[in-house]
Design a protein around this nucleic acid. Structure first.
Lengths: 225, 225
DNA sequence: CCTCGCTTGTCACCGGTTTGTCACCGGGGC
DNA sequence: GCCCCGGTGACAAACCGGTGACAAGCGAGG
């Protein structure tokens, strides 16, 4: 799980990074707006923690830019007594905020809550109807049949589809979830992945019963069970 | 050690699952009565944590069904102020209960207490099938054969594998358990460690019977016997 | 302090699998 | 017809796991 932390105060940034990495997260750092955006595009983190006061811009700018291209959870850091900032942050699509000073403990708890809310903090397995996906073993069991072995990307694709079982998941969201921002815009990647996955899990890959195409929108996993 | 957690509240379920998996348990989840019973039959967990209020039934039903076929410890989750439920739960054979809200810390303490009572908690030694690992002496005994001396890292690797015997343990989890976060991402380390361990414990290291590779996912210890 | 032996980390290579890329097909809307 | 979209097959590039060799680290004993 990769987290982007942005702050111009080196001490605070180090503290945040230390707390997060102790907890097992991979942390990428930035100290100003342009580098934050560059790192975000490059590393495709799963969550962003943004300070509001930054040299040459603000965390709002970053939040806005991120929201234009991604739905990753965003947490803003504010100094005490700047309540009006919070309204603006939440308006811009931030998911949570933390008032300085805060304890590493609190930070971790909030980060975990955000990841959980985003469906990213799944344990080892998830299910929808007849489908049981084991994220550790990279296997999918359909009903009582033998589990099918999956590749890493196939597992990631099914993870987000099962998390949204029965609903259409947009092409762009699938791309960023499976490949990060690198794959953004390349529909060919998704075409092939879906094709290969259907060969494995569909009874008749030419007439998919589980992984439906929603023309012009994305794909939808049928959760019958 | 595998634990079944059943709750219809996704947040609480995720929290419980996260706390348990952080502590090294394998967690399997379910959100309703039928799927809980299906998962229980299929996964044979060592302990079950059941919420009482579930859509389309209650934790009591699950507890009753489990008790008909198994003696695994069962812990029930109740909302505050439903004391009469506790009587019923304990009547049905539940071993412990927890009143919401509770802290992950409390949960873990109670779970460990239950496992200890059931004789499943490991001391300085642990076993799976024919394998007996002595964490103090750094030795592994296979069946009745002579114990094999292990290095520190080999012991750590076998510790997590035996704790999850029969299940796939993901590469990333192995790396962090053996090396800490430092080794995260370096698959070469794990490759070599597994290679060296196989030389020691496998009858035919080229055709491993105990420490199986799960391509693209991780490794799995076969618990035969 | 030095050396020995064991453990651990790093490099390079092989063969198999997975993933990325391209080219082409067919259907539906304009 | 033309264009856009999704599906498909083929091939190449990247990656993964297994293996041997060797160097670096480390503790024990001289």
């Amino acid at each position: 799980m990769k987290i982007l932390a942005v702050d111009d105060d080196p001490d605070l940034l180090a503290l945040v990074a230390f707390a997060l990495s102790q907890a097992g997260f991979v942390v990428v750092k930035a100290v100003d707006v342009p580098s934050a955006l560059r790192v975000f595009a490059h590393e495709a983190p799963d969550l962003a923690i943004l300070d509001i006061n930054l040299p040459g811009g603000s965390g709002f700018d970053i939040c806005e830019a991120i929201r234009k291209q991604s739905r990753v959870p965003v947490m803003m850091l504010t100094a005490r007594g700047e309540e009006e900032d919070l309204v603006r942050a939440l308006d811009l699509g931030a998911d949570d905020y933390l008032t300085k000073p805060f304890s590493p403990r609190t930070l971790l708890a909030r980060v975990r809550a955000l990841l959980r809310r985003a469906g990213l903090e799944t344990g080892g397995a998830m299910s929808a109807g007849e489908l049981h996906l084991d994220l550790e073993a990279h296997t999918l069991r359909v009903g009582e049949a033998e589990p099918v072995k999956l590749t890493k990307l196939e597992t990631r694709l099914l993870q987000i589809l099962i998390a949204n079982a029965g609903n259409v998941v947009g092409t762009e969201r699938l791309l960023t979830h499976v490949w990060g921002h690198r794959g953004s815009g390349d529909r060919q990647l998704l075409k092939q992945l879906v094709h290969r996955l259907r060969q494995k899990i569909e009874r008749d890959p030419a007439e998919p019963a589980l992984l439906k195409t929603e023309s012009g929108a994305g794909y939808r996993l049928v959760a019958s069970g």
